[in-house]
Design a protein around this nucleic acid. Sequence first.
DNA 1: TTGGAGTTTTTTGTATACAATTTTTTATAT
DNA 2: ATATAAAAAATTGTATACAAAAAACTCCAA
Lengths: 243, 243
Amino acid sequence: MTVTREPVVAIKSEIDRQDTTRRAKAQDLIRSAILNGYFSTGQKLVERELCKLTGASRSILREALVKLEASGLIERQSYRGYRVATLNVQKVCEIFELRAALETLAAELFTERASPEETAALNQAYSNLEQCITAFDLNRTRAAKQQYYDVLFSGCRNVEIRRALENIIDRIYYLRSRLMQDPNRRMASLEEMRRLTEALIKRDRVAARAASIAHLEAARGAVLLRMAQDEVDSKAKTTSTAI
Amino acid sequence: MTVTREPVVAIKSEIDRQDTTRRAKAQDLIRSAILNGYFSTGQKLVERELCKLTGASRSILREALVKLEASGLIERQSYRGYRVATLNVQKVCEIFELRAALETLAAELFTERASPEETAALNQAYSNLEQCITAFDLNRTRAAKQQYYDVLFSGCRNVEIRRALENIIDRIYYLRSRLMQDPNRRMASLEEMRRLTEALIKRDRVAARAASIAHLEAARGAVLLRMAQDEVDSKAKTTSTAI
DNA sequence: TTGGAGTTTTTTGTATACAATTTTTTATAT
DNA sequence: ATATAAAAAATTGTATACAAAAAACTCCAA
C-alpha cells in the first residue's frame, strides 16, 4: 500500500494546474472586468450579457459565477441574479480586520517555519518590489507584490490561511489598485514592508507581528481616506450636474 | 436619493434567505452525506451518481459542487472530477491554526462590541448547551453549539470573519462529530466554554482570548489523539484481514 | 397624472443533448 | 503471463432548449 504525501511547500500555480477550462477563463475575465472597473459596484450582472462578453455558454458561466460569489466579489439573490458587491466603510473595516488577522498570523508563522531559501527569496522579492515602486511601474509593482506574498504564504506552511485570504483577496486588490495611484502612499507602503521584511528575515516574531499590523493599519487608513475623498467628489459632481 | 443601509447585525439565515432552489438542496444533501460518512474521505464523487442521489440534473449538481469545493470539503481536478477532501494530521493542524485565529479574534471583538442583549443571549446559549451536554443529547448539542457560535459571531460585528470560518466550518464539524462521542471530551469542552463565556460576559478581552485559545488547543489535541487511535485501529484491522 | 390589473418580455432556474477527455477493456505481440 | 496499443466505455466539459419567476410594459379607470 503506497501513501501519497503532500509536498511540504504548496505552490498556488501547482494547486489548480492545467485548469484551462472555459469556466476558469470566464471566471478570470469577469473578475478582471470587475477589478478594472468595467462593471461598477452594485451593478446588475445579466448572464446573457456575460456570455457575450466571455464567449462562454450559460452553464459554464453560471459555474464561474458561483465561484466568484464564494470570494465575495459578487452577490446573489434567488431568481434575481448577481450584482457586483458594494463596499462601504463598514465592509472595508471588516475586510481589513480579517486580513490583518490572517496576514499577521502568516508573518508570525513565517518567522518560525520558513526555510533559509525562503527567507532569501523573500529578501529578493522585496528588492524587486522596491525597484518596481521606485521606477513607478504600476503593472510590475502589482506582480511584484503578489510574488512577495506568495513567498510569505509558502513560508508560513499553512495552505488554509492562504485559502481564506484568497477568498477576500479580490476585494483587497480592488482597494489596493486605487491606493497605488498615490505616490506618497506607495513610498510609505514600501517603507512599511521593508520593516516587515527585516523582521521576517531576522525571524523576530514580535517585530514581524508589529510590522504587519502597522502596515495594515496604515493601508486601512489610506483606503478610508480615499473613500471619503471619492464620496466628496461624487457629491460635488452630482451637484454640478444638477446645476 | 435614498441610501440603503445594512442592518447592524447580519444573521446567517437572513443572508441566503429563501434559497429553496434545487441547487441549494443538492448542496446540502451532498454536504450531509459527506459529514455523516456516507462518502468516505478521498472517495471519488461521480456526477451521475450524485444526480441519482439528489434527484437534481447535472447542471444544477455541478453548480452545487463548485460551491462545496469553495468550502474545501471536496477537491477537483480537471477532467477527473471531484473527490472528498482528505484530512491528514498536517491539514488538521492548519485548519485549527486558522480557526483559532478567527474564533479568537471574534471573541476579542465580542468583548468590545456586543450589545447587552447579545451578552445575555450568549449566556442563555451557554446554559442551553450545558443542559444538552449533561443530558447526553448529541443532536441537540450540535444545534446548541451552532446557536452559541451564531451569537458570538453576531456580537463581534464582522460578517467577513464568519464568512471565512464558514469556508472551513464543514471540515470542523466533521472533526467535531467524532469528538463528541467521547464523554470526557464533552465535559472538558463544556468547562472550557464556560470560562470563555464568563470572560465574554465580563468583557475581559485578555481573558476571552486566553479562554478561546485554550479551548481550541484542547480540541486540537483531542482530534489528533483520536486520529492517532483511528490510525492504529485501521492498521490492526488491515492486519487481521490479511491473516 | 396616478395607480393597478393583466399581458408581454426578460431573466433566472432547470433539464438534456453533444463534445472532449479520461478510464477501462480487449486484442495482440513478445 | 505480461506488456503494449487500439478500441470501447465511462466521465467530465460544454452548449442549447425548455420552464418558472421576475421585471417591464400596456391599457384602462379614477
